[in-house]
Design a protein around this nucleic acid. Sequence first.
DNA 1: GCAACCAGTATACTTTTAGTAACCACCAAG
DNA 2: CTTGGTGGTTACTAAAAGTATACTGGTTGC
Lengths: 118, 118
Amino acid sequence: MTNTIKTKTKLKEINSQSCQEPCLIERGMRVLGGKWKASILWHLKDGPVRFNELSRMLGGASKKMVDQRLKELEVQGLVTREVISDRPIAVAYEITDFGRTALDILEKLKDWTQANNI
Amino acid sequence: MTNTIKTKTKLKEINSQSCQEPCLIERGMRVLGGKWKASILWHLKDGPVRFNELSRMLGGASKKMVDQRLKELEVQGLVTREVISDRPIAVAYEITDFGRTALDILEKLKDWTQANNI
DNA sequence: GCAACCAGTATACTTTTAGTAACCACCAAG
DNA sequence: CTTGGTGGTTACTAAAAGTATACTGGTTGC
């Protein structure tokens, strides 16, 4: 007998290969899971927002953080940056169609947080 | 006139108080968003798993990390730890009913990652 | 006895991230 | 001319996250 342990609970059959290196959950989290990233996306859902306004919305995130996250999100195609005025310089960030596809995950997350008082 | 900018795109009305300090999205992310946390939860969905087995499943997470995350998840009531045998020491981690409520968020995340080749 | 496995713990170390504060150039109002 | 707003950048520091290695103390198997 190789296993003499009397399990009180039925243990999952041992198959180590149920997930290869960075699994889907982990990979997804590395796109949406960074600090402020999901929040930024969420705050853009009702329309374009300006840089400084966004910083204020997040309340507590430094300009550097907002800037860094926005750049990441832009590279990943979740948001776009557009200059809306030159003279008094004004920039707006907008969520892309692809970015919108992530919103229902966030919606669920929001509901869950709310329902469980987290 | 206070605002002389000619906006090409309709800008969101300026109301800085659309989110107070750590908003729902951010708070939720701080529970599920840590590295490996969501993955661990996901890998427990089919039944209890042992410590070393779980480490192998995550492939790449150190024991310390797995240990740390499991403790956090336990404190937050998402998983339970139970000793299933004393003599050859054996411990199994199991997802709680509360933990299960988070699984459909992760399911959506998984589908999203898969659908977009992330 | 010796090696290997279980479930961790401890220590030391490196890397990454977060956050602060100051600064730029530009513009407008007072 | 000074103050305040826009949209950032740069330099620096502090804290968190992660890695690697070794160790305990018991058990099982050869």
